[in-house]
Amino acid sequence: MPATEMLPSSTPTTKRRPDHEGPLLEVEDLAVEFRTRDGVVHAVDGVSYHVDAGETLAILGESGSGKSVGAQAVMGLIDSPPGHITRGSIRYRGKDLLGLDEGARQRVRGRDIAMVFQDALSSLNPVFTVGDQIAEMYRVHEGASRADARRRAIDMMDRVHIPAATSRFDDYPHQFSGGMRQRIMIAMALSLGPDVLIADEPTTALDVTVQAQIMDLLAELQRESTMALVLITHDLGVVADVADRIAVMYAGRIVEHGPVIELYERPAHPYTQGLIDSIPRMDDDREELVPIAGAPPNLMKVPSGCSFHPRCPIARDECATDEPPLYAVWSGRESACHFWEEVVSSHD
């Protein structure tokens, strides 16, 4: 590890130079399953994506799509049993994390790749002050002295715009509002200056006015540090605002992937199209929403062929038998639909 990492610096902009070719974080053909007493849940089934420094990749999906499990696998947070990573690789700076032992994995976590969860209240320990919880990161990971850790923790609280950080250092999590707690979670995640931040529904539990504050904060922090952001969400609105690229997940697979504007304007998969059609919009007085029929599949019994075919308005016979690969629509655009051309041309 380069020495910059060890400096007590609150400006992690002077990060390591890329020492390898290829993307910063690259997930390839990842599969995670949970073996429960009722059967095997194929939560993630062959997912590949990558993200580069300074870039925001949104992983969009509904509940049960596997979007969170995939992120937990990257973080090495899958409890085993019941969870098992059955295939694939997760490469950070070219190094496969799945091959590391737990100790090495631990060092990657927090220092190189950090994560923010949806529920900040249950993610913070209620019996320690928030300041202590941030300062602990420096003490444990960097062996900082008590005074030094405290100073850097307060710096960090300032950076996430917690008013009167010095005096709030000794407050407990329950003394903060939801938005402030999420800021503290972000401060903890960013304390060691990670290169990749995975944010799992970071604003879902928050009110809309606070959501806006948190998304602005994440964008600002990212600009400061050229950190890569993987934003996991179900909210198409949040994605449209901040993401560079989107990967849409359905039933444990990525069904469509591409730059955000193209993907919204010319979706190449019927599921993406269906999602866009089914959300009510502020700028549109449509009387009738066009929902997707049916409900997402049970992950113990994913439909054969294309897992979306039972709900798909354009499904043909082969959709039930042939699993579609991720077709390259054009450069940087992919769709896992046999009839993507039909979907794309429907926009003309």
Binding site: F34, T36, D38, G64, V69, S122, P296, M300
Partner: peptide, 29 residues
């Protein structure tokens, strides 16, 4: 199907769970 995603499976170092979820993987299905 909604319960199938066993988000409770995740724990970070401090022992906090990612989201309220059923660690048993669900009475799903």
């Amino acid at each position: 199907t909604r319960d199938v995603e066993p988000r409770g499976a995740a724990r970070d170092q401090t022992g906090a769970t990612g989201a309220a979820a059923d660690p048993s993987g669900g009475e799903a299905a």
